[in-house]
Design a protein around this nucleic acid. Structure first.
Lengths: 84, 84
DNA sequence: ATAATAAATTACCGTATGGTAATTTTATTT
DNA sequence: AAATAAAATTACCATACGGTAATTTATTAT
């Protein structure tokens, strides 16, 4: 491999629930966690994880926060384009 | 006033929907926008804005993105504590 | 290939979202 | 204080979220 530690450590912009789902899945997999692992930590059902990772637009905000937290991720709001 | 430009330009961590609502309201007011202004831009009803600003946990994710966008804000995900 | 593990789909269904629009309450302005 | 504007509340209600749990499909491992 060329670059062992290729995972970007910078914040990743979330423009859509698609972005969100993709990020969650990638990070979960990178962490070698299963969906079931998260179910327990985030207190949710399998349907939610699947729908979240598939980019469902209507997932509830707090539940997303729970899942992100279970993954060791956090959300931040910033001014458009700042820090690009 | 002691510090005229006191608004932090750094990303603001969102730990809860309370944080989110507070931030949205503060930023909206700072921008001298009314709730009604956002209704149009974000294609939503007054109920949503009120509930969002009041920290309702179950607001739908995509709608939140819409409102943030209308305010010129964006969401980012980062690793817990990175950039603290 | 088989077995085992993980992910996705589905049905059932109680509950809650959120739009609309009218009304009330609160805040701001003159 | 009156008037104006903004924010919040409410009722009505169609839509759909999301838990559970079983089933199916896909992926990984032996």
């Amino acid at each position: 491999m060329i670059n062992d530690d290729s995972e970007a450590k910078q914040p990743i912009k979330i423009k859509s629930t698609q972005d969100l789902g993709q990020l969650v899945r990638e990070y979960r997999v990178a962490q070698k966690m299963t969906q079931a692992d998260i179910l327990g930590l985030a207190n949710t059902g399998n349907r939610f994880i699947v729908e979240l990772e598939n980019g469902k637009p209507t997932v509830q905000f707090q539940k997303v926060l729970d899942v992100l937290d279970a993954l060791g991720l956090e959300l931040a709001v910033r001014i458009n384009g700042s820090l690009k």
